[in-house]
Simulated scan of single mutants.
Amino acid sequence: MNVLICPDKFKGSLSAEAAAAAIARGVRSALPQAQVVLQPLADGGEGSLDLLARQPGLKRHRLAVPGPLRRPVDAGYLLGGDRAVIETAAACGLHLVPPPRRHPKNTTTIGVGTLLDDALARGATRVTLMLGGSATSDCGAGMAAALGYRFLSREGYSFVPMADSLQAVHRIDGSHRHPGLAGARITALCDVTNPLLGPSGATYTYAQQKGAPPEDLEQLERNQQHFARLLERDLGCEVRELRGGGAAGGLGAGCVAFLGARLRRGTEGLFEAVGFAELAAAADLIITGEGKVDEQTLYGKVVAGVLGYRQPTIVTCGTAEIGAGQLGAEALLSLDRNTAAPPEERMGRAAYWLEQMIYLYLRNRPVSGKGADRQG
Score class of each variant (00 low, 15 high):
F227Q: 07
D234S: 00
G249C: 06
R154H: 14
E238P: 00
Q167K: 06
L251H: 14
F151E: 05
S165W: 03
A168W: 07
G140L: 02
L189I: 11
N194D: 14
Y204D: 14
L251I: 14
S175Y: 03
R240A: 14
A145Q: 07
G244I: 13
D234Y: 00
R154Q: 14
A141Q: 00
G252N: 04
E241G: 15
S175F: 02
A184P: 00
A184G: 08
E215Y: 08
L166M: 02
V256E: 11
I172E: 00
H178G: 08
S153Q: 09
A253K: 07
G201E: 07
D173A: 13
T205H: 10
A207F: 08
P199Q: 10
E215C: 10
A253H: 04
A248F: 03
R243I: 12
G156W: 14
A202P: 04
P214I: 01
L231Y: 01
L197C: 15
E241H: 15
Y206W: 10
G183M: 02
A144K: 01
Q208C: 11
L197Q: 07
S165Q: 01
E241A: 08
E232Q: 05
R177W: 06
A145N: 05
Q209W: 00
N194G: 10
A247K: 11
P214D: 03
G236D: 01
L147M: 12
L242A: 12
T193H: 09
R229G: 13
Q225D: 01
M162G: 15
Q219M: 13
E218S: 15
G148V: 01
R233C: 02
S153G: 07
E232I: 01
E155M: 09
L181H: 12
E241V: 05
L189V: 06
T203F: 07
F227G: 11
R150N: 06
D234A: 01
H170K: 09
G156C: 04
T203S: 09
P195Q: 05
A182S: 13
A228G: 10
A253F: 03
